[in-house]
């Protein structure tokens, strides 16, 4: 390579590297970290793991009995700010779904939290859907949950079809369940 060509090559290389670095900085700086993102859960496409037990509201619940309905399973904790952020959105979503024939059902699961703190949170947030207790963390372990809030959509077939981590909005959930609601 002749010197002018070499200088041009180095300048071009530096330019490409510079553009990549600037693009990465812009991408990371403008990314909304306060929104839910989908993640590649190993459960996707598989039958939902066992989920049964006592709810904080009293009745016993078993996910297996909900076959034929779309169920949105949300692992959350009262101490987690993103969970506090999404809570009114999930309540709005759950309410909207009651107005749809065979709409999705919402199910909360306590993640790494005390039942006392969670009961206070439910009352404060006005959560109307059932919230399953998980004192030993076995349910969260079966579902491979590592941080709250983590949300799964279980189709009417009983298979896990979507997985999100981070705070969801009612709009996002509406769009996420739409392909599965009313489908058997």
């Amino acid at each position: 390579m002749t010197p002018p060509k070499r200088v041009r090559f180095i300048a071009l290389l530096s330019g490409v590297v510079g553009v990549i670095v600037v693009a990465l900085i812009v991408l990371l700086a403008t990314r909304d970290s306060n929104q839910a993102t989908t993640f590649q859960s190993p459960l996707l496409g598989r039958p939902a793991p066992v989920m049964a037990g006592v709810t904080l509201q009293g009745p016993v619940i078993n996910l297996a009995n909900a076959k034929g309905h779309v169920v949105v399973v949300n692992f959350f904790a009262s101490w987690c700010p993103p969970c506090q952020q999404e809570s009114p959105q999930l309540s709005a979503f759950a309410y909207d779904q009651t107005k749809i024939t065979n709409g999705a059902q919402m199910l909360g699961v306590v993640y790494n939290d005390s039942n006392t703190a969670m009961k206070a949170f439910i009352q404060q947030q006005g959560i109307g859907y059932p919230v399953l207790t998980d004192p030993q963390g076995n349910t969260a372990n079966r579902w491979g949950v590592s941080s709250p809030p983590t949300t799964y959509i279980v189709a009417a077939s009983g298979r896990v079809v979507a997985a999100y981590v981070g705070p969801l909005t009612a709009k996002q959930l509406d769009a996420a369940v739409k392909p599965y609601v009313g489908v058997h």
């Binding site: 790494n112 030993q136 963390g137 076995n138 969260a140 372990n141 949950v145 590592s146």
Partner: peptide, 11 residues
């Protein structure tokens, strides 16, 4: 010693 670790250890 988190509950999730205890659950994994038990499994």
């Amino acid at each position: 010693s988190s509950p999730s670790s205890i659950a994994v250890r038990a499994q």
